[in-house]
Design a protein around this nucleic acid. Structure first.
Lengths: 274, 274
DNA sequence: CCACGGGTTCCCGGTGACCGGAAACCCGGG
DNA sequence: CCCGGGTTTCCGGTCACCGGGAACCCGTGG
């Protein structure tokens, strides 16, 4: 489970294809065939064939210059992930928050031992920006991360506290101290991080409550030189409350539109478009 | 090439796997095994195996109740699509636009004979909302669509004008009239649609200029009962100009970070994480 | 001019992964 | 208890996949 290698001796074709897709990341959004081969660990001839199939299936696109990139079809499929529900629902409130405070806003959900950035908004000004949607943040040294950690299941807490990696001189690496902070967070419903992840950047965050406990966190970022965050706290809490309310109201993570009775014959074969 | 059926006699395993993914759409974000089988047109046993592989590859996730949904991995991969570049770049300006006008904003790009919605923002109020990111809009009866159509290559124009489907009583179905409108759009850089797509909804849109011509369109939506759109035009034009400027400045759709010299040996094998 | 290197495409014989019908299993409802 | 829908497992035949290797393309520099 620790192996960073994604494609050692993948028996199944599907896994190999997945390995090809996995060759793409934030720093490599377009790759030529050879790069694809090297980064996926698959022989050139093999990846040539697989990539051709993926292009035919529209998951990849081959540009004029021969490089591959993620296709619109894959993009659209990704939008069907549950993360999108949360995003759509929260977006208006996040916008209000940006407008009201002028700070950069993060919406994150737990993802293993990390925090997955679902959305990041910042005004045209006021952007110490980084960490676009899709990025992962550590749990122990960001405000949003700490919120999630404070309400995370035991195993996750253990995994995280087992490796408190230092990011800056301010990163909390003492398990004791961290646990005290987590207690405080559970008590107050507010987490802080002062330059613990990046120098010059502070943040505050609050939990978002779903049907089963804390399912997300909303945070504000500010550079030390800009306006302080304290004044924004009421807005932050209000936004989180609104999102939680909408979340519960919409019964997310719930049964979902359950297939219609399907009276007649087979009835499911092929029908709707997006 | 015309067959609407996506998975009739797909030779390659990869295409079958793609067909499984294709079983998901906006109305079917979670599916159980049988639905997956029916919607993908593949035998139960086959889809059972393929889905298991996809789950292992993290493209799908199997929930506690046995249903499948799009996995976070796939979501993140999708974010690597070029559409995301445009979105990130445009987002701040779109927000300003929402704040300044109170209307709902659409950012779309051409996709075959349709318009692909890249982003849709609306204030907490003022939301006749529909058409989330990932949705496709027709080119002949929406403001954003007409903008793209006005600057689209010949074949696309032919395909679209060959089938001017009526959506409401106001839809323009006369090719002559449409062409006159397109001329006007090219002249003025502004497109309108008054209830041509949905009753009670009007829209205006302007083009966004990239390195090679018009690469996107930004539009405003308003219900008939709400405030008029005319007052918002200057803001709309300003936003589009800002996005165009950022787009050209960042040299998008351009070479992209070109692999570093790669001096030493093989050098590309395996390295970065998101 | 040709040699060279990196990327890409094509070929092809061997074999093991894939296929999918069928049967067993599970479970809630009547 | 049986029934029906969904899910999982089994298994032998065969065919699609595999990937080394060679040919091809093209810009570079000697």
């Amino acid at each position: 489970m620790r192996s960073p290698d994604v494609s050692p001796r993948s028996r199944s074709v599907t896994l190999r294809a997945t390995a090809v897709l996995g060759a793409f990341d934030a720093e490599h959004r377009t790759l030529n065939l050879s790069q694809l081969s090297r980064r996926s660990g698959l022989p050139l001839a093999t990846v040539h064939r697989l990539a051709a199939d993926l292009v035919e299936g529209q998951l990849l696109v081959r540009r004029g210059d021969g490089r591959y990139e993620i296709g619109a079809r894959l993009w659209r499929l990704g939008l069907l992930a549950p993360a999108t529900n949360l995003r759509e629902l929260a977006l208006p409130h996040l916008q209000d928050l940006v407008v009201a405070t002028g700070h950069t806003v993060h919406l994150v959900v737990p993802d293993g031992a990390g925090a997955l950035v679902i959305e990041r908004l910042s005004g045209t000004r006021s952007t110490p920006t980084r960490h676009n949607p899709g990025a992962r943040l550590p749990l122990h040294c960001t405000a949003v991360g700490k919120v999630l950690l404070a309400f995370a299941p035991g195993p996750v807490v253990e995994e995280v506290t087992g490796d408190l990696r230092r990011h800056t001189a301010y990163t909390v690496t003492d398990v004791r101290v961290l646990h005290r902070q987590l207690d405080e967070i559970r008590r107050t419903g507010l987490a802080r991080s002062a330059q613990e992840h990046r120098l010059g950047v502070s943040s505050v965050a609050v939990p978002v409550h779903g049907t089963d406990g804390v399912t997300a966190a909303i945070g504000l970022l500010a550079s030390l030189t800009g306006p302080r965050l304290t004044g924004a706290l009421p807005h932050l809490r209000a936004a989180a409350a609104s999102v939680s309310a909408d979340l519960l109201r919409s019964g997310l993570a719930a049964p979902s539109p359950e297939e219609p009775p399907a009276g007649g014959r087979g009835g499911d074969g092929k029908s709707s478009a997006q």
